[in-house]
Amino acid sequence: MSDSNYTVSRASPAAKGAAVAGAVILIVLILAPWWAGRADMRLMGELFLYLALASLWNLMAGYAGLVSVGQQAYVGFGGYMLFALTIFGGLHPVVAIAGAAVLGALISVPVAALIFRLRGAYFAIGTWVIAEVFRLSFAQISALGGGSGSSLPVDIVRSLSSSRSGREALSYWMALGAAVLVIAAVYLFLRSRRGLALTAIRDNELAAGSLGIDIWKTKFVVYVVTSALTAMLGALIFLQKLRISPDAAFSVNDWTAFVIFIVVIGGIGTIEGPIIGTLIFFALRETLADLGTTYLIVLGVVAIVVMLKAPKGVWGYVRERYQIQVFPLRYRVKTDSRN
């Protein structure tokens, strides 16, 4: 017989190693303006924004069971708010980005009140209707260019930084910062009481309901927070693009289809999944983009095959195989045996 001491902790060697590696990678990435080329920085900036979008969609669909195909509503809304707040409100772009997040949260409240009446898959299509309403509405606003859109005035662009390389570095850092902020927010949220409730809902709505977890309220909070952060990302995206139009801002392909593919391929319902998925997505895009439509067909086929054959995605497969998690959410029981 042995005396056993049990300790319960979330930490695992893999997680500790990953934390160190993550810190090193983050520092290297922060220093990118001094080592990376202009095109690479642009690509990485885009990658960070997609990573953030994917993490948010994953929070909703993978944890809260809110499957949206209308996240372009908030990307476009955030983009338009950046333009409106800087052009008409005279705000500094960085302030306008924060403003877009606040307004995104505000508008998402009545939207949630409406579409939360739809269940499951009908909720998904309901989110798409909302995105269409946003697109058609912004196309009616002639001050923002109506259907053909408008560009960000030069003096507003200059207010970020007078030099082009300064602007590029700044928008790169903001994209990196947004990705880190979103992943950290998702991680901390999932570790919180409300986050644990969310996982309980996902695993069994009936049981969670009987345990007294207010399902509606928890989902509502997730929806509003996700909407705010998605609007913030939309503002950042269109600060990089400098031009906005209803079709680009509310594109279901760009802001929802790609994001869904990233999450599904990487592994839905895990924090690591969107990270892996984003890397795979960009690797595929950079190698197959010349194929044009064929590339999208391949992407669709890959997503369907993954969904049918490995519904937990690449990361789910790795995790099941090797029992590791980089972002420790589960508790582990550790036994110290002393004979």
């Binding site: 499957v67 195909v69 999208l296 067909i297 669709g300 997503a303 969904m307 049918l308 519904p311």
Partner: peptide, 30 residues
């Protein structure tokens, strides 16, 4: 395809038909 997605979880049918939608659109384009 679709019979394999049916069950209690709404995600598989939703995401598979969504993938199908993207495939069809690009096949039309092609």
């Amino acid at each position: 395809i679709l019979n394999q997605t049916l069950g209690d979880d709404i995600l598989p049918p939703l995401l598979v038909t969504f993938g199908l939608s993207v495939i069809l659109q690009n096949v039309f384009l092609e």
